[in-house]
């Protein structure tokens, strides 16, 4: 494997966004790119990352290799990379270590780290292609703000999507709160758009602890997309350049 990123920033942010959700995971490398799928310890949330080969310049991977990595250790190594550094990830066949090289833009500094790999026997879940009943795109910063505000009211949020908009409702001991985002297009700045497509109305409840955790990915993308269908896990997607993505799945809460 040899994969070179123009700026370490992307990889630093991706790892930062998932390291509190999953501790040990395989980065599955093959000729289409670097992928990762891992569930949190409670098996309630799942992260699915794809960094496509086109994200790297260049990208070369001659055979499928899983790089089993402790994300806490990786975070320590990535601290040594400045956001603007060129990052190269390298690995041999059947590796014991992954090699990370950080180069300053002006090429006067080269840092090189070897990170020990671990054997991780990871369960992969099959995520079916789903036609979601409702898809809502909104500014990622707005979603983060809504989740963190409502977490102060309640542990759970009900998300309701209709043609008019998407409503987040929390009911707690101190009272209730709700935030509605109405569909709208900002002609000046499409990053501010709220776009809803719907085949049927959806109402589901989710843990805000997990949703606020997903929002650690906010810096990766201006917009976030929520995909919902009744009685299936929510998908929260941060789309990245070159068809790369960071997706989170969260199982719903069901009333008893």
């Amino acid at each position: 494997l040899e994969a070179r990123l123009e700026a370490a920033d992307l990889f630093k942010k991706v790892v930062e966004a998932i390291k509190d959700l999953v501790q040990h995971c395989n980065f599955d490398c093959n000729d289409s790119g670097i992928a990762l799928q891992a569930m949190d310890n409670s098996h309630v949330a799942l992260v699915s990352m794809m960094l496509t080969a086109d994200t790297f310049t260049p990208f070369r991977c001659d055979r499928n290799i899983p790089l089993g990595i402790d994300l806490t250790s990786l975070t320590k190594v990535l601290r040594a990379a400045q956001s603007s550094d060129i990052l190269t990830i390298k690995s041999e066949d059947a590796p014991d270590v992954v090699n990370l090289v950080f180069e300053g833009k002006d090429q006067d500094r080269i840092s090189e780290y070897d990170l020990k790999l671990m054997d991780i026997d990871q369960e992969h879940l099959g995520i079916p292609d789903t036609e979601y009943a409702a898809t809502a795109s909104m500014p990622a910063a707005d979603f983060k703000r809504i989740c963190s505000d409502l977490l102060l009211i309640s542990e759970a949020v009900s998300i309701e999507c209709t043609k008019e908009g998407i409503t987040f409702k929390a009911e707690g001991d101190i009272g209730n709160g709700s935030v509605t985002l109405r569909q709208h297009s900002d002609l000046e700045n499409s990053d501010k758009n709220v776009d809803i497509s719907l085949t049927e109305p959806v109402a589901l409840s989710f843990s805000l602890k997990y949703l606020t955790g997903f929002c650690k990915a906010t810096g990766l993308s201006n917009q976030v997309r929520l995909c919902l269908s009744n009685d299936v896990p929510l998908m929260v997607e941060y789309a990245l350049a070159n068809n790369s993505y960071l997706r989170f799945y969260l199982a719903p809460k069901i009333g008893d």
């Binding site: 569930m39 309630v44 099959g126 809460k253 008893d256």
Partner: peptide, 14 residues
Amino acid sequence: HQYQEQLSTFFKPK
């Protein structure tokens, strides 16, 4: 009261 589902209810191991 609400009960938290697990993902394995929806997604099966590959």
